[in-house]
Design a protein around this nucleic acid. Structure first.
Length: 178
DNA sequence: CGCCTTTGACCCGCGC
DNA sequence: GCGCGGGTCAAAGGCG
């Protein structure tokens, strides 16, 4: 596997992703432990909560997961590329219910670690995880009373991709200047 | 001065 | 009960 080289590409900096002609594939890795208990999201959640911007869409595969408070996962995994509003692979995001934790993961081809999603985040932790040379970073939403968290790490198997996992639902709007 | 990272320590659940 | 792995705390320092 090629080493990740942050200097090897022209698209670098604020909100940048790989150029659109640089292939469309965001392969799902069926055997990736990371996505156990996730299923592929077949539609975007409403924009305010999705925490991901449209310009990333072509470089992103989205996963969703719902975990009950007792810890039992509710959904198995499936696989399909994310394609706008196409209706493949799943039933889409369900409404939040009590006793559930909503999680959404995005696997995005990007050279920047932290994708600008319009929210303000405060970092509160960093860990090296087993079986990965890459650190995992923990962020909490800065808005008062908002308990949304996200984790950011590079894909173990292909460092060109960033995996961002959101947990929870914002109790406020995305800042309007976004 | 008011936020923000950084960082090691701490906590907790789980398997042995 | 103990160690390990993952997640979080909080003190200290940085920066606009």
């Amino acid at each position: 596997m090629d080493a990740y080289d942050p200097m090897s590409n022209e698209s670098y900096g604020y909100r940048s992703v790989d150029s659109p002609d640089n292939n469309y594939d965001v392969p799902h890795q069926q055997n990736s432990e990371f996505f156990d208990n996730f299923f592929v999201l077949d539609e975007w959640m409403n924009e305010d909560q999705a925490s991901i911007v449209p310009e990333y869409q072509d470089h992103t595969l989205a996963y969703a997961s719902t975990v009950f408070d007792d810890g039992s996962p509710s959904i198995g995994s499936s696989s399909s590329p994310l394609q706008g509003n196409s209706n493949v692979g799943g039933t889409g995001m369900r409404q939040a219910q009590k006793g559930r934790k909503e999680k959404v993961a995005f696997r995005t081809k990007s050279q920047v670690e932290v994708l600008d999603d319009g929210f303000k985040w405060r970092k509160y932790g960093k860990k090296m995880v087993k079986n990965s040379p890459n650190p995992r970073n923990y962020y909490r939403c800065s808005a008062e009373g908002c308990s949304v968290k996200k984790r950011v790490e590079r894909d173990v198997e292909d460092a060109r991709y960033v995996i961002t996992t959101y947990e929870g639902v914002h109790n406020h709007q995305r800042p309007s200047n976004f």
